[in-house]
C-alpha cells in the first residue's frame, strides 16, 4: 500500500527539509520513496509544495487530486489552495498563522487567515490545527515551524515512524549547533483542536 503525503506552504518555511526527513525515515523502513517539490524562482515568497510517496510500487513522484493520505500545511491559505489533493477521508495538519503576501499587504487586503481556517473546519473531517506562532515563541526561534509540524504528524501516528526516529534523521541533516533547538521543536506537544 502506498502512502501519499503533501507538504505545502510558502517559500522559506523549511518544507524541503521536512520532506527529506520523512523520506529518510521511510527509506529506513525499507520503503521505496519518491518526491517532487518546488525549486527555483517560485521559492522566493511564492506558494511551495512537496509531494512525497512511499510504499512498494511507485511509478511517478507526483500524484493527482484526491490522493493525499496526509497533508501538512504550513499556512492556512496554502492548505485551502492544495486541499483538492486530499483524499476524502484524509487528514490535514495546518499551522494557523497566516503569511501575508506582499500583494495583500500592498492592497491592504483583508486576508487574515481566519476565513481559511473556517473553510477548512467546514470541509475537512480530520483537521489538526497547530498554533505555530505560539509554539515558535515558546521554543524561542521563529525558524523551527517545520520541526513543530513534523513532530505533530509523527505524534498523531500519521507517519510510520517514531519521534526518536525522526530525531535521528534530523540530526543527520541539520548543522549540530541547531540540533538541540530542532529537537525541542520536534518534541513540542502543544496543539489545539
Amino acid at each position: 500500500m502506498n502512502q501519499n503525503l503533501l507538504l505545502c506552504g510558502v517559500g522559506g518555511q523549511g518544507i524541503v527539509l521536512v520532506s527529506k526527513l520523512v523520506a529518510s525515515c521511510a527509506m529506513q523502513k525499507g520503503y521505496d520513496v519518491m518526491s517532487a517539490e518546488t525549486i527555483g524562482m517560485a521559492q522566493k515568497g511564492g506558494s511551495v509544495f512537496s509531494f512525497l510517496r512511499f510504499g512498494e510500487e511507485i511509478a511517478s513522484p507526483m500524484f493527482g487530486r484526491g490522493q493525499a493520505d496526509l497533508m501538512i500545511a504550513f499556512e492556512p491559505a496554502e492548505a485551502v489552495r492544495m486541499l483538492p489533493y486530499l483524499k476524502k477521508d484524509g487528514c490535514i495538519i495546518v499551522n494557523t498563522k497566516p503569511v501575508m503576501p506582499v500583494t495583500a499587504v500592498l492592497k491592504a487586503s483583508a486576508y487574515q487567515g481566519t476565513e481559511m481556517l473556517a473553510y477548512l473546519k467546514q470541509n475537512v473531517s480530520r483537521l489538526i490545527l497547530v498554533n505555530g506562532e505560539k509554539a515558535c515563541h515558546e521554543i524561542g526561534s521563529p525558524r523551527v515551524l517545520n520541526m513543530i509540524m513534523l513532530g505533530t504528524a509523527v505524534r498523531h501516528g500519521l507517519l510510520p515512524f517514531s519521534v526518536s526516529e525522526a530525531e535521528t534523521a534530523m540530526r543527520q541533516n541539520v548543522r549540530p549547533q541547531f540540533a538541540e533547538l530542532n529537537q525541542k521543536a520536534l518534541a513540542y506537544a502543544e496543539s489545539e483542536k
Binding site: G45, P101, T103
Partner: peptide
C-alpha cells in the same frame, strides 16, 4: 473520469507571485 471529491468554492486565495527577498 474518476469521481472527484467536490469541494465548495473556497474564499478568495491570496496570490503569491515570487518577490525579492
Amino acid at each position: 473520469n474518476p469521481e472527484e471529491h467536490k469541494l465548495p468554492e473556497p474564499p478568495a486565495l491570496p496570490v503569491r507571485p515570487p518577490v525579492l527577498c
